[in-house]
Amino acid sequence: MTLTLTVPPGAKVRVRITNENGETTEIEVEPGETVTITLPAGSTVRVEVEVVDPDGRKRTETFTLKP
């Protein structure tokens, strides 16, 4: 399973991925970048995406991906 994120110009994104064992991976994606994350097959993962807009506003979306 893959997750692809494209960050709009001016925004910053931090992604936290937590697996079933509670292990967390965190990455930051710079403005204008596209990143593809390969998620472990057969695992349920929690993905938290934090977006910081150019004006400093933050918003966070959290979702769970199941196999």
Rank of each mutant, 00 (worst) to 15 (best):
V13L: 01
T36C: 14
K58S: 04
V7S: 01
V51T: 12
T25F: 05
S43D: 12
R16F: 04
G32C: 10
V47P: 00
P67F: 15
I27M: 11
P67R: 02
E50G: 00
M1L: 10
E33M: 10
D53G: 13
V15H: 01
T25M: 05
T38K: 06
E20I: 04
E28T: 05
T25H: 03
R46I: 12
K58V: 12
T4D: 07
V51M: 05
L39M: 10
G56E: 00
E28W: 03
K66D: 15
G22P: 09
T62A: 03
T6M: 12
L39H: 05
E26C: 06
E26N: 06
V7E: 14
E50N: 02
I37D: 08
V49Q: 00
T38M: 07
L65V: 13
D55W: 06
F63S: 15
T62Y: 14
E61K: 07
T38C: 14
L5H: 02
P40L: 13
P8H: 14
T60E: 00
A11V: 01
R46E: 05
T25E: 08
F63C: 15
E28I: 02
S43I: 12
V13N: 01
P40E: 12
M1V: 08
N21T: 08
K66N: 13
L5W: 09
T25L: 13
I37W: 13
T34S: 06
A11K: 01
V52E: 12
T62D: 15
P31T: 12
A41P: 06
T64H: 04
V47S: 00
K58C: 05
R16I: 04
L39K: 03
L65I: 14
T44C: 14
T34N: 09
S43P: 06
P40N: 10
P8W: 14
V13P: 05
V45G: 05
P67D: 05
V15I: 05
L3K: 06
I17Y: 14
L3P: 15
E33N: 08
G56K: 00
G22L: 07
K12I: 05
P54G: 04
P67V: 15
T38F: 13
N21R: 08
P40F: 14
V7R: 01
L65R: 00
T62W: 12
T18E: 11
K66V: 15
P40T: 12
K12V: 06
E28P: 11
P9C: 09
E48T: 06
L3V: 08
L3S: 04
A41E: 08
V15K: 01
E26A: 06
K66A: 14
D55A: 02
T2K: 08
F63I: 15
K66W: 15
T62L: 02
S43R: 14
I37L: 09
V15W: 05
I17H: 11
E48K: 01
T36W: 12
G22W: 09
G56W: 00
M1S: 04
V49P: 00
T24V: 05
T18Q: 11
E61F: 15
E28A: 09
E28D: 10
T64W: 15
T4H: 10
P31M: 10
S43C: 13
N21I: 07
E61S: 06
E20H: 09
V49N: 00
I37N: 15
E23F: 10
T18S: 07
V52Y: 02
G22Q: 09
K12P: 02
T64I: 14
V29H: 09
G32I: 14
T60H: 02
T25K: 10
G56A: 00
T24S: 08
T2E: 07
L3A: 05
T60C: 14
T34F: 13
R59N: 01
D55Q: 03
E48M: 03
K12C: 13
D55F: 04
G42V: 14
I27F: 11
T38A: 10
P54N: 04
E30Q: 06
R59H: 13
L65N: 01
G22D: 10
A41M: 11
V49Y: 01
E20A: 05
E20N: 06
V52L: 02
V52P: 00
E30G: 03
N19E: 11
G10K: 09
A11E: 01
R59L: 02
P54F: 07
R14W: 11
N19I: 14
T4M: 14
A41V: 08
V15T: 08
T24M: 07
R57G: 02
P8I: 13
E23Q: 10
N19P: 14
V47H: 00
V45H: 06
N21E: 06
V7H: 06
T60Y: 10
V51G: 01
T18R: 03
P9Y: 05
S43K: 12
T34L: 13
N19S: 07
A11I: 01
P54V: 08
R14D: 11
G10T: 03
V49K: 01
E20Q: 06
N19H: 05
P67M: 15
K66M: 15
V29A: 03
E26I: 04
D53T: 09
E48G: 01
G32Y: 13
E23I: 11
V15F: 03
E50V: 02
K12F: 06
E33K: 12
G42S: 12
R57P: 00
T24P: 08
T44W: 14
V7P: 01
V49C: 03
V35I: 05
T36D: 08
E50R: 01
I17W: 12
P54L: 05
L39R: 05
E30C: 10
K66P: 15
M1W: 13
T6Y: 14
S43A: 13
F63V: 15
G22F: 06
E61W: 15
I37E: 14
T44Q: 03
T6I: 13
V52H: 02
T24D: 10
E50M: 02
E23R: 07
P31Q: 07
T25Q: 07
I27D: 07
F63E: 15
P40R: 08
G22I: 12
V45C: 05
R59P: 00
S43M: 12
T64Y: 15
T38W: 14
R46G: 02
V49I: 12
R14L: 05
E23K: 07
I37F: 12
P54T: 07
P9L: 04
P9N: 05
V29F: 11
K58M: 03
D53C: 15
T2H: 08
G56P: 00
T34P: 12
V35Y: 14
L3E: 02
T24Q: 11
E26V: 04
V35F: 09
T18M: 09
T2C: 15
K66I: 15
T64V: 14
G42F: 10
V15E: 00
T34I: 12
V49G: 00
S43Q: 14
F63W: 04
G22K: 08
A41G: 13
R57A: 02
E33R: 07
R59V: 06
P9K: 08
V15P: 01
V35M: 06
P54E: 08
V29S: 09
T25I: 09
T18K: 04
V47A: 01
V7W: 14
T18A: 07
P40I: 15
T36L: 13
E30Y: 05
E23H: 09
T60L: 04
I17A: 14
D55G: 01
G32T: 13
V51F: 11
G10R: 07
